[in-house]
Computed example of a mutant assay.
Amino acid sequence: MTRPIIFTDLDGTLLDFSTYTPDEARSSVARLQQENIPIIFCSSKTRREQEPYRTHLNISDPFIVENGSAILIPHQYFTPPIPEHKRTEAYVVIELGNPAEAIRHALAEIRRETNLTFDGFSDLTEEAVRQITGLSPAQANAARAREYSETIVTSLSNLAREKIATALTARGYQLLSGGRFLTVTSAQTDKGRAVTLLTHLYRQRDGKVTALGIGDSRNDAALFAAVDHAYQVQKPDGTWEPIPDLAIHRVPAIGPAGWNWVAENCITQKHPFSTRTPPYAGV
């Protein structure tokens, strides 16, 4: 088997669906790190939301933020360094999406054009975000610190959602359905594009690598399509969310327990990574 690299969703996958903690998977993360297997977060979460989990788990690999809107790579991670990209004190940033300020401007125009009323994280106070999400003050502020997207928290009718989606499409944006809320990003960005670019960088450096993807929902479909082997963990009720037309291995465990299953099989090579399960129909 070639060297594996793991791209993972966070909420409901590496993180417990209810507590948002990665503690159940912590020992598996440590074992993967002992085997020098990269663990790459690929989530709708912001940079500020993801960084505490990286620190908590001692992960120093690149990560993908806001549904593929940007790839953040620690300095000197790849040699030679990646040229011609934005640089911050900590990262080389490959920006694939538009700035959040432009998205918020587009949403303001759509409100005026459609006479629809809806709120995003940026429209709410930290306290309001806390009440809606159950997050701590620090987590709420991190969730509001969106650099390439906006989260719509208002419950919308199907008709209102269609109107907003149509208006966004005309402006070069897309409306994505997450676990609880709607997310607006640039139309040209998704998790899959970011995964493909980052996998290419690993292959340039390391030669042959096998990309594994772990997720739990339709929001991970682009991630699943971009990796060599895709693994879907169960929802808290023990079911798998239907994702048609993709070759995905359904893991027989919920959230972090399923994540541990994939990690164990990756380390021990018990699972036949050389083959993919056939596409399944939604259930």
Rank of each mutant, 00 (worst) to 15 (best):
S177G: 02
R205V: 08
R250Y: 12
W261E: 03
G255T: 08
R250A: 10
H229P: 00
L176Q: 09
S274F: 09
Q232C: 08
H229W: 06
A165D: 05
T185S: 14
D206H: 15
L198I: 06
P272A: 08
G255S: 14
P236I: 05
N265R: 14
R171D: 00
A253G: 09
P242R: 14
A194Y: 12
F181N: 07
D190F: 07
R203S: 09
G215C: 05
T183P: 05
D220I: 02
G192M: 11
D237N: 15
I248T: 06
H229N: 10
A211P: 03
T239H: 15
P242N: 12
G255M: 03
G258K: 08
Q204C: 14
L197N: 13
T196S: 14
P256S: 10
T275F: 12
Q234G: 12
N265P: 00
T189K: 13
C266E: 00
D206S: 13
I267T: 02
K235R: 15
G238S: 13
Y173W: 06
T166W: 01
V184R: 11
P236F: 09
G215Q: 00
D228F: 00
L246R: 10
P242A: 11
Q269R: 04
P252M: 15
L198G: 00
E241L: 13
A221W: 02
I214D: 01
T268H: 08
Q188M: 14
I267K: 07
K270D: 06
